[in-house]
Design a protein around this nucleic acid. Sequence first.
DNA 1: TTGGGTGCTAGCAGAACTGATAGGTTGCCT
DNA 2: AGGCAACCTATCAGTTCTGCTAGCACCCAA
Lengths: 244, 244
Amino acid sequence: MQQHLVDDFITGLTTVTTVDSARELFTKTLHCLDVGHYAYLGLRFRNAGPRGKPFFITTYPQPWVEHYDNNNYLQIDPVMQDAPSRSTPMHWGTREHRKQMSPRQKRFLNEAAEMGLCQGAAIPIHAAGGEFGLVSVAVDATPRQFDTMMRTHQHQLHLISLYYHAHVAEKFISNESPKVSVTTRERECLLWSALGKSSWEISEILTISEATVNFHMQNAMRKLEVYSRPHAIVKAVMMGIISP
Amino acid sequence: MQQHLVDDFITGLTTVTTVDSARELFTKTLHCLDVGHYAYLGLRFRNAGPRGKPFFITTYPQPWVEHYDNNNYLQIDPVMQDAPSRSTPMHWGTREHRKQMSPRQKRFLNEAAEMGLCQGAAIPIHAAGGEFGLVSVAVDATPRQFDTMMRTHQHQLHLISLYYHAHVAEKFISNESPKVSVTTRERECLLWSALGKSSWEISEILTISEATVNFHMQNAMRKLEVYSRPHAIVKAVMMGIISP
DNA sequence: TTGGGTGCTAGCAGAACTGATAGGTTGCCT
DNA sequence: AGGCAACCTATCAGTTCTGCTAGCACCCAA
């Protein structure tokens, strides 16, 4: 196992300044690991909010990407179905993996194989603040070759993907600054509300009047630019203001 | 870099059946990496809910653990402050790390050093479902020794911690089964409410009456065993029913 | 010491939500 | 066909939340 590859990548990341140069470094490093094609998908960045635009780059064949988009394969792709709920890498397109697939998914995998994407590995990445990333690599190889390749390279692939995502997420986040400063009382009210308490109950807990609790919730909602408690709480959790 | 150590650990995990035997394997493997003391903290397991009891094991010296507890050092410990918001490993107790510490934190680090916990590494682990784990290792060594050790062992330590947490989390989760089955409409109502829509707005979106939206929210709340929308949404997000 | 800013406290009308009740549709089993 | 369960649709009284207004305490700078 070439440890220097991982270390060089990490060192390299500290020197790059743009998202593009980070991508180049990532592509070059994966190339050293004999990865033919890869796709990186960054979702749910902390301040991207609900339904935030995903961050997506790929070296998959262009025809396949278009075919994938046109047929809305995001809904079928077994990797997209399973990976987000996993914490460790998974292999797809292998004999065992195919066994558990539905007919539609088998068709999907066959179509991918025709494009030279026979099998591969998917690395789910869960980072701080609920950020999620996914690195999927594909190779055109025999099962035996793939097996050997994973045995020698999987851990490096894993680490490199992890650090890459952490770096991209950081860059992505640093650009947006929420700057919402809620007061102590406001945060307390948000938290108790998130835990199911009504205004009256919160007033008893904090020993203030119900009207005051409502006032604090008002201000919290105004600061968060929302117009209902449910939304305020969701946004507060998203932004790390409260963690129930 | 001894790849076999990581692979053996992963293989070993698939054979263990109890949480205790997993811990033993973990301890033994870390011992091979010259780790003197370690602590593992598992928090926020998916179904543990708000304020869930943490899962904690450690080989730190007993006097230190007691001293830590008695003085409520959880609030001061710089590792506990920083690690959860990081996505990659960090080193603590080093010269650079100490520079950024407050006087109280410096005192804390000095007390730790007196117990033989001079410096170490902390590995934050973010897994599926918002689970969070932290592996902190400490060594009684010179800065130079520590540096060498990290250069050769950090990646293995990282991978081993990752797989260990994933395994423990899975065991931890499988024991509790939420078994809450919300219907399509209920899920839709929860999601739109989480995005700030009122009952009337949701009724327009789904082209049903406002009363019907309220009814679906009712049922969702009953199934989730809560008595307000904010709480229902928080719980639904926690349980992975909706992801705004 | 005086003014301005910030945060906490509080009350009230109108809109939104909670909880209970009931009819209608679909699909499944007998 | 009939019975049954699950789900969706809808209504209404009582409670809670939203939006607005206003006073009070504290800190800090002029």
